[in-house]
Design a protein around this nucleic acid. Structure first.
Lengths: 133, 133
DNA sequence: TCAAACAAGGACTTTACATATCTATAATAG
DNA sequence: CTATTATAGATATGTAAAGTCCTTGTTTGA
């Protein structure tokens, strides 16, 4: 039960982009070097963030990735859902009447976690912490 | 990011054992049939619960698995940890100074979830719900 | 106008782990 | 002694994550 490395990369990339907040887009090559991951793999991950509307990509020379206007509202949950999907962590594979009681318990716990992740914006983190990247 | 099927089986087996609370142990064959899983595989899972001290096994004819004395205190978190391990869901694989701010956020969210799972005892669930197994 | 710099995406390989299965061993009741 | 039961090692299978390679298309600036 672990978040994937892709989620790790996505969160860190968003941290970099948010901490930088430049008009000039950052290329995937630079972002990949910082995280010690291959550029092609990272680009696949970032494309998911683009499709989720969190960042935008600029093709061509001096292109790269850049935050969109709504960047201050992006939460941890947004990023995690964009990469991991938003399905529940638990599926009862057994059939006992109307609704599995175990499922209900796990779901309520999951919601507590999501609530925390929804309330934590990446921009707050950048403000709070004296980021050492 | 999903709990494994093994966790599903473990939780349901504990539900069955708790709902039954018999002196007579239940064999793995019966427990496996109810969940439509192979007995040998389920036995490997249940051995983990034995080693975690949640249930005990009785070898030989009329043997099987049975709750231990502390059964009323067993929480969802106990069971999940016995199967999944208790490592964090997130490991920052990047090195930025003392402590990753992302890690901290995810950990705090994880703790909220664990708090819920720790407070929910399997025995409470059996009492609350009119179990239809 | 052309070459270099960039992202997107399809196809593929590799790796890792979950999910089993098979078989042998050991214990116990009757 | 035999049937029944758990334990455990070895091995197979399946599946998803992680990563690579190559092609295509777009844009800038020389």
């Amino acid at each position: 039960m672990k978040y994937s490395k892709a989620t790790d990369y996505a969160l860190h990339t968003m941290l970099f982009l948010t901490a930088a907040t430049p008009q000039k887009p950052m290329g995937v090559k630079l972002l990949a070097e910082r995280q010690n991951v291959s550029p092609t793999y990272l680009s696949k991950i970032l494309t998911k963030l683009v499709k989720a509307g969190m960042i935008e990509s600029i093709t061509g020379v001096n292109g790269g990735y850049r935050l969109r206007r709504n960047w201050e509202d992006i939460s941890f949950l947004d990023i995690i859902h964009a990469i991991e999907g938003s399905a529940s962590m638990f599926d009862c594979s057994f059939d006992h009447g109307p609704g599995c009681p175990i499922q209900k318990v796990v779901l309520s716990a999951e919601e507590k976690m999501e609530e925390q992740l929804r309330n934590q914006k990446m921009s707050d983190l950048v403000r709070e912490v004296n980021i050492v990247i």
